[in-house]
Design a protein around this nucleic acid. Structure first.
Lengths: 165, 165
DNA sequence: CAGAAGTTTCAGAGATCTGCGAACACTCTG
DNA sequence: CAGAGTGTTCGCAGATCTCTGAAACTTCTG
């Protein structure tokens, strides 16, 4: 029983960290609740009870988490309620989505370069470096994540790490 | 001349993106202003005039950016004013600091595992995967960044990409 | 040491965001 | 098709955050 409390505390603690990092507080709490729960799935009602929040708040959090791949709706035969779970491989999915940001940064650098013209100007020099960096990362990061996926599934053959999408 | 406006626009556009990603709006504007400026350095007064913000706001933004390595105070001989610039290698520095976050995530997973006990429980399984992922990334990312630094300085021998330290 | 130039701090106005609770919409059951 | 069970949307009150403008502080000059 004490373990449950410790899990609860650890969940809230991580939620706080994520919230400081920019994530919505309630959204973070919903996510960590699913992550640290000893049940495979939780319903919206479970989350309301566990986190002491309204059903509207749960709905909002779900709407944010689901597209990011940090929450999955699970078909629940026999129950009319939606069941939610933290998907396997979610962290890898999340980091993969950062690639979109890398691409955006590269494009921003491009636009700046088009306006700055010469890479010998101060702005041109800075933006050229920026572009180089993000191009590099965009090329190197996806294979790295893929390698983790491969390694991990090799280590855990019973657990198919599913990609969303 | 039109180029200046295009640079300005590109700067504000990137600032907006960064703001949506969680960065303070004014902080982002100050950063992109330095990044896209055709001058090597800008003073606080320059930033006030350029961005139409108060000196207090500039001070606040500087206080946020400087510790992250996204802004540097430059000694300005002959001028009593502080001069600020966007440091070379700032993007790499920034990503290196993300490593701290990776470590924190790994620790959070550890704490959860200590409470969940068995990795065969649902929470244990999820947290074990989380730990594996962040441990992997923490091991692989720093060398990757270092490789970019090496490659880049090799390509641009005149431009010492300085690390903040 | 008095005064000027510049930066930082701080209280408060204004804007933004967030989650609650209720109304609404949807989907199965009988 | 009526009605119960759920999920979603939305207006609003409360909380939070942010920037301004002014005062306080620091550092340099004469």
């Amino acid at each position: 029983m004490g373990d449950d409390k410790r899990l609860r505390d650890a969940a809230e603690k991580l939620a706080l960290i994520l919230a400081q990092g920019g994530m919505q507080k309630t959204t973070a709490r919903v996510m960590t609740c699913l992550l640290f729960s000893q049940q495979e799935t939780l319903t919206a009602a479970d989350l309301c009870a566990e986190l002491q929040i309204s059903s509207g708040a749960v709905s909002g959090a779900v709407k944010q988490l689901a597209p990011s791949g940090l929450l999955e709706r699970v078909p629940a035969p026999g129950s009319r309620r939606d069941h939610y779970r933290f998907p396997d491989g979610a962290w890898a999915t999340l980091m993969s989505q950062q690639n979109q940001l890398l691409a955006t940064m590269g494009e921003a650098a491009d636009q700046g370069l088009a306006a700055a013209g010469d890479p010998s100007t101060p702005a041109g020099r800075r933006l050229a470096e920026m572009k180089d960096f993000y191009t590099f990362m965009l090329r190197e990061l996806p294979p790295l994540i893929e390698r983790w996926r491969t390694d991990f599934t090799a280590k855990h053959p019973n657990q198919e790490t599913q990609q969303s999408g």
